[in-house]
Design a protein around this nucleic acid. Structure first.
Lengths: 120, 120
DNA sequence: TTGCTCCTCACGTCACGTGAGGTGGC
DNA sequence: TTGCTCCTCACGTCACGTGAGGTGGC
């Protein structure tokens, strides 16, 4: 499928999808003769993984590294780098849990603001 | 008190406090002869209001407008502008509730990422 | 007096938004 | 063939981070 459909399905802007490709987070797995990006269902799945990771505040570079490690684990002929990937992902998971706690604190602060504003 | 103590108490960077002043969100109510910013307890309270509002993703300009409206309502000799302030704040509250819902959806997405990563 | 805190530039960064000008796809 | 979608620059924006070079406060 083309980039417009991906944007609609993932609720991301065309610019974000292109920017993510520019900085190496995810790319369309193909191109048409005319240069149009062509995405597969698998590409969309990967984009949705990034989208879920985004609220945790990781940088695009960090998310790109995670995607590469996830692809390594999914790849049947990965060998030496395999263990490194597993370790790095374990670290990311720990980090993600801390960030999740921070996000929850932010939600609590937002609630404080809302009740403060409700009281005029 | 000086900016360093405010930064510690509010968990904000010196740069953020100065930047917020630059763009008109909140300023230190005084300065020493030598030019040091002097903050009161009331200043700190206002800064904490902004800090609670931040997770909702409002721009500094929007947060500045909210602060000015809140100050209007707190001011005993406000007159003509008073009603406008009340209406604007009601709009902000509606907006804030929508943003809170979006923030909660982000937390849910983060949870999906975490469980996805937990499963390797 | 020492050193720690604070000051103002001013450039850098991150993740895109937003045209401009042009062309591919059904 | 029309128009809608997509393409690549490339500059702009937002909210700060990060020195540089200098000075105030107890």
């Amino acid at each position: 499928m083309h980039i417009g459909e991906v944007a609609t399905r993932t609720e991301l802007s065309l610019r974000s999808l292109r920017h993510w490709e520019e900085v190496g987070v995810i790319r369309a797995s193909g191109r048409t003769e005319g240069g149009f990006r062509v995405y597969t269902e698998d590409d969309v799945e990967k984009i949705l993984v990034i989208r879920r990771m985004k609220p945790l505040g990781f940088s695009l570079e960090e998310m790109g590294a995670v995607m590469r490690d996830l692809e390594l684990l999914a790849d049947p002929d990965a060998s030496a780098t395999y263990d490194g990937a597993r370790e790095r992902l374990a670290g990311v998971l720990t980090d993600a849990r801390e960030r999740r706690a921070a996000l929850e604190r932010q939600l609590a602060m937002a609630d404080e603001f809302i009740s403060l504003l409700s009281a005029q």
